[in-house]
Design a protein around this nucleic acid. Structure first.
Length: 213
DNA sequence: TACATGATGCCCT
DNA sequence: GGGCATCATGTAG
């Protein structure tokens, strides 16, 4: 069992660099959520980088608007948006104040508060059979919309909040875990700038969403 | 004010 | 594998 208490909080400086480097460096870190009912946590196993000018898939590409202003703010803040009328997606802002860029969290490996996360997702956890057990765990947070639902993340509650404050109810910590190998592929579900290899995931990890090659 | 669209996931076949 | 729910946002008119 991972010791969340001894893990170190990621500082703003961690996010104050190119989103591609942040996206890769975030793999293996823990995303920690404090709720009134308890602590929820998952290991980050899949991310995507979104750049500023030149990356036409990025929300920041068309310039600053009311919706995407967090992307243009200081590093280490949550950018949450609502998509397809159903889902929330969580990103963290990168680069200094005034320069847009972010990393999208796409999948977590459940670590703590698993029962509560499964409940939030409306998933029945299987405990007996090993295969079915893994299968039910995979449904908790493999995908940005699923992950946000599991962690009870909404735009209203979380957009613009700092992730690098020790008092934050949503933060990212390093417990010393190191990933062995990272795979890089094009991003998922986009049309513009679809060829850019900006998706990063932990090679061989079963909690990654979508295609794995 | 109207309309097209989207960094998704679920359910059905 | 494909259809579709469902709505905030941005842009055009």
């Amino acid at each position: 069992m991972t010791s969340l208490a001894r893990a170190t909080l990621l500082k703003a400086e961690f996010f104050n660099r190119d989103p591609r480097r942040v996206a890769r460096a975030l793999l293996g870190k823990l995303l920690v959520r404090q709720t009134p009912r308890g602590i929820l946590a998952g290991r980050i196993v899949e991310t995507e980088a979104y750049l500023g000018k030149g990356d036409t898939a990025a929300h920041a590409a068309a310039g600053r608007t009311a919706r995407n202003s967090v992307l243009f703010g200081p590093p280490g803040h949550a950018y949450v948006y609502f998509i397809y009328g159903n889902h929330y997606c969580l990103n963290v802002s990168c680069l200094p104040d005034g320069v847009p860029g972010c990393v999208l969290f796409r999948a977590l490996e459940p670590v703590a508060g698993i029962e509560q996360m499964a409940e939030a997702r409306g998933i029945e956890l299987v405990k007996e059979d090993d295969f079915a057990k893994i299968s039910s765990l995979q449904k908790i947070s493999a995908g940005p919309g699923r992950m946000s639902e599991a962690l009870e993340i909404t735009r209203e509650r979380d957009n613009g909040k700092s992730l690098v404050n020790a008092r934050s109810h949503l933060r990212i910590v390093d417990d010393g875990y190191r990933v062995r190998r990272v795979t890089v592929t094009p991003r998922i579900g986009i049309v513009k700038s679809a060829e850019l290899p900006l998706r990063y995931f932990v090679a061989g990890n079963p909690f990654v969403s979508g295609w794995r090659s």
